[in-house]
Computed example of a mutant assay.
Amino acid sequence: MLTRRRALTIGGAAAVGAAGTAALLTGGQDTPPAARPAAPAAGPPAHRALKPSAYRLEPLTGYGPPRAAAHGRTLVRHEPLLRVSGRGRTMVLTFDDGPDPRYTPDILRTLREHDVRAMFFVCGEMAVDNTDLLAEMTEDGHVVGNHTWSHPLLTRLTRSEIRSQMERTSEVVEDACGEPPVWFRAPYGAWNRAAFQLGADLGMEPLGWTVDTLDWMTPGVRTIADRVERGAAPGVVVLSHDAGGDRSQSVRALRDYLPELLDSGYDITVPTRHYT
């Protein structure tokens, strides 16, 4: 019978092979960034139709070489960044859809106890009434990203509607954190050309994920923790949620898998980026 530590080691090796072709970005605060989009990771094709009622689906991405941006502006990509590159066994934890005062404070508390930084992709309609939590994220060294205003399916919106979703959320983040977000994540992982272009116009890089905990399905604390531990590998970006439903399992699972990752030698950090 495998121990949890042994499962982490085996799962990490498997994840490296499975996600080795995903895009890269730099992890950590001290390493120069180098984002390199590459071949697509496994997942459904970009044209797959989604139902608006589906709260969370697997990543949908389009792939292709990035278009060079003008000097001093953010690169317009044709795919989201999916992995981090850095020294040692670097991983990134991300939490979407918040902040929610029922769950986000507990997640922040656990991260603080272990002196770990994470990324929070916030929805404007949640953030506007919980700016104190955004300020707390910033004070603790976490990265606050843009996850649109109301979590719509961007592929069904006009360009002006997408821009409004992004701009309104960026304004809330800037007011609460002192600076606008520089990372963006499309709801449901449903990216399109307009989302990439408009995100770049607002100075944001697109970030996807490598390991999906599927915690939105409330599969159980142990199942969520096992998905993280088995998927752990250098460069992995983990997707979890701190809002959008009952996230008590996500809160408890973090308490289980975070010390396991740290004890196994993983450096849980946040990515850095640079402007072209």
Rank of each mutant, 00 (worst) to 15 (best):
G141P: 07
Q165A: 01
D100S: 03
S248E: 00
P187I: 05
G64D: 15
M204S: 07
R89I: 06
R109Q: 10
T272Y: 05
P40T: 08
T138D: 02
A233W: 05
P32H: 13
H274D: 13
G145E: 06
M204F: 02
F120D: 00
R159D: 14
T276M: 09
V16S: 09
Y188K: 07
V270K: 08
A34W: 11
V238I: 15
D215P: 02
P181K: 02
D96N: 13
H142D: 02
D100P: 03
T155D: 12
E113A: 15
I162A: 05
M217F: 08
L111T: 00
E167M: 14
D267F: 11
A176G: 01
A35D: 00
H47C: 11
L57E: 12
H47W: 15
D215Q: 07
P65V: 12
N146L: 04
I10T: 11
T9C: 10
R67S: 14
P219Y: 03
V16W: 08
R89M: 06
R252Q: 15
G98M: 01
R4V: 15
W149F: 12
M1F: 10
S85K: 09
T110V: 13
A18F: 06
G88M: 13
G124Y: 08
M91W: 03
Y55I: 07
Y257L: 06
A23P: 02
P234F: 03
P234C: 12
G98I: 02
M137C: 11
R255M: 04
V16F: 07
A54E: 10
R36C: 05
L81N: 01
R73V: 13
N192E: 05
M137D: 00
L254W: 03
L50T: 15
G11L: 05
W183G: 00
P181L: 04
W149N: 02
A253S: 10
Q197M: 05
T158R: 08
V251H: 01
R255T: 06
T110S: 08
P234Q: 07
V236S: 12
T131E: 06
V172Y: 00
A39T: 09
G231I: 06
G203I: 02
P33R: 04
L2S: 11
P66Q: 15
R193T: 09
P40Q: 10
V238H: 10
E139Y: 06
R222H: 14
L133D: 00
V236F: 02
G11E: 09
E260F: 04
M126A: 13
R67D: 13
A225Q: 03
Y103R: 04
Y188Q: 07
S240L: 13
L254E: 00
A14Q: 10
A200C: 07
D201L: 07
G231W: 03
H147Y: 09
L262D: 14
L82M: 15
P271C: 11
L82S: 11
P80G: 09
L93V: 06
E113W: 13
R255G: 04
D226R: 12
L57I: 13
M217C: 13
D30T: 09
V76F: 14
L239T: 08
H78Q: 14
V237E: 05
A135D: 01
V172A: 03
Q197I: 04
C123V: 03
T61W: 09
M217R: 14
A7K: 12
S150A: 12
T218A: 01
D263S: 14
E167F: 09
L111D: 08
T272C: 08
G199W: 01
A7F: 13
S170H: 04
D129T: 10
